[in-house]
């Protein structure tokens, strides 16, 4: 399992792995929104939590369609399915690798973009915390979507259609935790719910995703 994690991280770092692509997308989004909305700091402060969360969510989605598709094309997925590692473990490890290369950098970079969007001071810690707690769910849910569409041509677009509705609860709770904190309210309930969704998804969705992968390999 560690070997798979190391391989996926190594692949993401090497040329063509797309590491940093999501981060770049996130940055561009945070720059484009004020250009579209206008420079009024009050408005930006109000919408910053939502923009940052939607941005993180879309950035996560970018690299998801390659999560299993590349391994499917070069035959690795067949070989992993016949290896001693259970397919559920393969899904979990690949989702973890996706989070380490996408969700984690996004969470760490978000405060910088929060400054760009004039996010109120008390919301910075909840922003980072909610992204740290919530983005793993985005990776696992995305892995499920990627497993459903792995054998399909143009699966990426379909995957977005399948995955984005599943992102709704994570987005709502995650962004609420930030915006409540930005308004000086207590955001801890939303934060706990975000963590709950991550825990539940990480526990159950690898099984659903492995089931989908087995069907797609048939």
């Amino acid at each position: 399992m560690t070997a798979l994690l190391i391989r996926d991280l190594r692949l993401a770092m090497r040329a063509g792995g797309g590491f940093g692509l999501g981060l770049g997308f996130f940055l561009i989004l945070a720059v484009l929104v004020p250009l579209g909305v206008g420079p009024d700091t009050g408005t930006l402060a109000l919408i910053a939590p939502g923009i940052l969360w939607v941005g993180a969510l879309l950035a996560c989605l970018l690299s998801l369609d390659r999560l299993f598709a590349l391994d499917h094309e070069d035959g690795s997925l067949d070989l992993l399915a016949t290896s001693p590692i259970p397919l559920e473990g393969v899904v979990a490890v690949k989702a973890l690798a996706h989070w380490l290369t996408t969700g984690l950098p996004l969470a760490l970079a978000a405060p910088v973009l929060g400054i760009l969007l004039n996010l109120p001071g008390p919301a910075f810690a909840p922003l980072m915390l909610s992204l740290l707690l919530g983005t793993p769910a985005l990776s696992v849910i995305g892995a499920f979507g990627a497993a459903l569409t792995v054998g399909l041509k143009r699966g990426g677009l379909l995957m977005s259609l399948l995955v984005l509705p599943l992102y709704v609860p994570t987005l709502v709770f995650g962004a609420q935790a930030v915006s409540r904190a930005a308004q000086g309210l207590d955001g801890s309930t939303a934060l706990l719910l975000t963590a709950g969704i991550t825990a539940g998804s990480a526990a159950l969705l690898p099984f659903a995703a492995a089931f989908a992968l087995r069907i797609n390999l048939r």
Partner: peptide, 14 residues
């Protein structure tokens, strides 16, 4: 199956 769980969650989220 998975969608049902998330649809219910979305309802509470909303």
């Amino acid at each position: 199956l998975v969608g049902s769980v998330f649809a219910a969650l979305s309802r509470y989220a909303a």
